[in-house]
Simulated scan of single mutants.
Amino acid sequence: MLIILPPSETKAFGGDGAPLDFESLSFPSLNPNRKEIVDVLQQYDVDEAMKVLKISEALRAEAEENTKLTTGPTMPALYRYTGVLYDALDAKTLSDKAWDQLAIGSALFGVVRARDMIPFYRLSGGTKLHDATMKSRWGKSITEALNAEDDFIIDLRSGTYQTLGKVKDAVTVRVENSEGKVISHFNKFYKGQLAREIAGKGISSIDDILATPGFHFKEVNGNQITMVV
């Protein structure tokens, strides 16, 4: 099983790993795209980057980090990302087997596994670099890389990141309240809880997910599961 998590805008600074080594990353077929995007990002000075990334002066430090993508420190991807989903996931308490089954979608790296060592960066799935969308920059490469995985895939990425590399047979999860309305604010929190519960548990089918204790699932529509919270 492979669970693909969404990235987060918020990330932990620093790290104690060596600078980025593309050849050490999972899904090596994505390296040409990764290198090209890194190269484009580093062509912007900080002021230009802030405009392209549409961030305020308060986040200048994040744009500055993009100038150090190949020289700055790294840390495991699962520790790099922070925020609601990752708080609910609580990576430090997960088993080694759970870590083995987690990956993260990314505008910069396409998709990486939990232990891949990555630097701090700022780049969103909706950003345009030199007027090219992230979807056009990734083309079919993420889809092809994930389709090559001989695994049962649970795709918890948001719509923006799913469009960067759709996986036809992946299971997706919709989160609703008891009135049938889609949960937006706490969507990531509940997906983080679900990922925490099923990672490392030998899940291999939709039925296995539906049988997960502590969760209520209303329906299955094709490969989409609706979780009621």
Rank of each mutant, 00 (worst) to 15 (best):
L2Y: 09
L2N: 13
P6L: 03
S8I: 01
E9T: 06
A12E: 08
D16K: 15
G17S: 02
A18V: 07
L20K: 05
D21H: 08
L25G: 01
S26W: 08
F27C: 00
F27G: 00
P28D: 07
L30S: 00
L30N: 02
N31H: 00
P32H: 09
P32R: 08
E36R: 15
V38K: 11
Q42S: 09
Q43S: 15
Y44S: 03
Y44H: 07
V46M: 14
D47Q: 11
E48M: 14
A49I: 10
M50Y: 07
V52F: 15
L53Q: 11
K54D: 13
K54E: 09
I55E: 11
E57D: 11
R60A: 11
E62T: 15
E62C: 04
A63V: 13
T67C: 01
L69I: 10
T71Y: 05
P73C: 13
P73I: 06
T74Q: 11
P76Y: 12
A77D: 05
A77R: 05
R80V: 05
R80C: 03
Y81F: 15
Y81R: 01
Y81G: 01
G83I: 10
V84I: 14
Y86F: 14
D87F: 06
A88L: 04
L89Y: 11
D90N: 14
K92N: 08
K92Q: 12
T93N: 09
S95H: 04
S95I: 05
D96S: 00
K97M: 01
A98W: 01
W99E: 00
Q101Y: 02
A103V: 04
A103F: 05
I104T: 08
F109C: 00
F109N: 03
F109L: 06
V112E: 06
D116W: 11
D116C: 08
D116V: 09
D116L: 07
M117L: 14
I118A: 12
I118C: 14
F120K: 15
R122V: 14
L123H: 12
G125P: 09
D131K: 14
D131A: 08
D131S: 14
R137L: 12
G139H: 07
K140I: 02
S141Q: 11
S141D: 13
L146H: 04
N147K: 13
E149F: 02
D150N: 15
F152G: 04
I153G: 07
I154W: 04
I154P: 06
D155N: 05
D155L: 02
D155H: 01
L156D: 03
L156R: 12
G159H: 02
G159W: 00
T163G: 02
L164P: 04
G165F: 07
K166N: 03
V167T: 04
A170H: 06
V175Y: 05
V175N: 08
E176K: 10
N177L: 02
S178C: 00
E179F: 03
K181W: 00
V182I: 09
V182K: 15
F186I: 01
N187Q: 11
Y190K: 10
G192M: 05
G192W: 10
G192D: 11
Q193N: 14
L194C: 13
A195W: 14
E197P: 03
A199W: 13
G200L: 02
G202K: 03
G202E: 01
I203D: 09
I206K: 12
I206F: 10
D207K: 15
A211I: 12
T212H: 06
G214V: 12
F215R: 08
E219M: 10
M227E: 06
V228Y: 04
V228H: 00
V229G: 07
